[in-house]
Amino acid sequence: MRIAILADIHGNVLALDAVLDDLKRRGGADLTVNLGDCVSGPLWPRETMERLEALDLPTVRGNHDRRVAVDPADDTMWPSDRYAQERLTAEQREALLALPFTLEIVPGVIAFHARPDHDEKYLADAITDGQLVRAPLATIRRRLKPLDPACRIVLCGHSHRSELIRIPGGPVIFNPGSVGCPAYDDSTPPAHVSEQGSPHARYGIVELDVPGRPDRFEAFAVDYDHEAAARQAEQAGRPEWAHALKTGFMSD
């Protein structure tokens, strides 16, 4: 079985289309899974939502999907969530809120956005000197405890950092990176940034149950018109998003 993994699209329909085209060139997949944070951001939330509605992918709810669904918006709503919230229909916001927290894709393969018990805390990451880095193995093991011991593969996003970690005696964790948002800053204490280091759109493919071969994990970085995405962010008054989309970094 060949499973394509998308995560953290963040309203970047140009990046999403580039990923889907690249996947098609590589022979497609038996199943494509979306790990959430679909539309939040100063780009094309309505267009992205419409594209995803047409695709009807198995999708888990991200923290920003939950936040975008708040109605009416209030002063505590983050700007990227507000931008998306104002451009979606009530039905689209309700659909985001109704997404499941976790999905069992096939037996032993579990998908969620961030952690098995929380949609806004990191699974495989720690914050060091204001940057996301890989967390210690003991920390990751502790965060995995809510999972069924039979789980052999974990699919997650949230950090926007591509990761492949085989836990000794435990599951493989696969984060494909972000389709549409290559860097971000988070002011929630402790404040930090996540930086993929290039503007490419990221996604992954997992191949399961191939006779005579172990499970295979591949991460891909796809070029697309990131300059057009950056211009859209600039027009929305978000120069920091524009810089991230152009470079994959939050600052020079």
Rank of each mutant, 00 (worst) to 15 (best):
E218S: 07
I205S: 03
A228F: 03
V206S: 06
Q232K: 14
A219W: 04
P199S: 07
R231T: 08
A233F: 07
Y224A: 04
R231P: 01
L208W: 10
A236Y: 03
A230S: 07
L208S: 07
D209P: 02
G212D: 01
R213A: 15
H200Q: 15
A228K: 04
R238F: 14
I205N: 04
L208K: 08
Q232H: 12
V206H: 06
H200D: 10
A230Y: 03
W241Y: 15
A219Y: 04
E207P: 07
V206D: 03
E227W: 02
H200A: 14
R231Y: 05
G237H: 04
E218T: 13
V206Y: 10
A201W: 09
G237I: 08
H226A: 00
A201L: 11
H243W: 15
R216C: 08
A236N: 09
A219E: 06
D223Q: 00
R238N: 12
P214D: 11
E240Q: 15
H243A: 10
Y203N: 07
A236L: 09
P214F: 05
E227K: 01
H226F: 05
Q232G: 06
P214G: 13
G237E: 03
E240H: 15
D215H: 15
E207N: 11
A221S: 14
Q235Y: 06
D225Y: 04
L208V: 05
P239T: 11
F220M: 01
R202E: 08
V222L: 07
Y224D: 01
E240F: 14
Y224C: 02
A229P: 04
E240V: 14
E234H: 12
I205L: 13
Q232N: 07
H200T: 13
L208G: 10
A242E: 05
G204S: 11
R238C: 14
G204K: 08
E240P: 05
G204E: 00
H243D: 04
P211Q: 01
E218F: 01
R216T: 14
P211N: 02
V210C: 13
A201D: 09
A233P: 04
Q235E: 14
W241N: 10
G237C: 02
P239F: 11
H226P: 00
D223P: 01
E207K: 11
A230R: 02
Q232I: 09
A229T: 05
E218Y: 00
G212V: 05
E240I: 14
D209C: 05
A201S: 10
H226W: 01
P199W: 00
E240R: 15
G204A: 08
E234R: 15
A233Y: 09
G204P: 04
Y203F: 14
E218N: 00
V222Q: 04
V222R: 03
D223V: 06
D225Q: 01
A219I: 14
R231M: 05
D223R: 06
A236W: 06
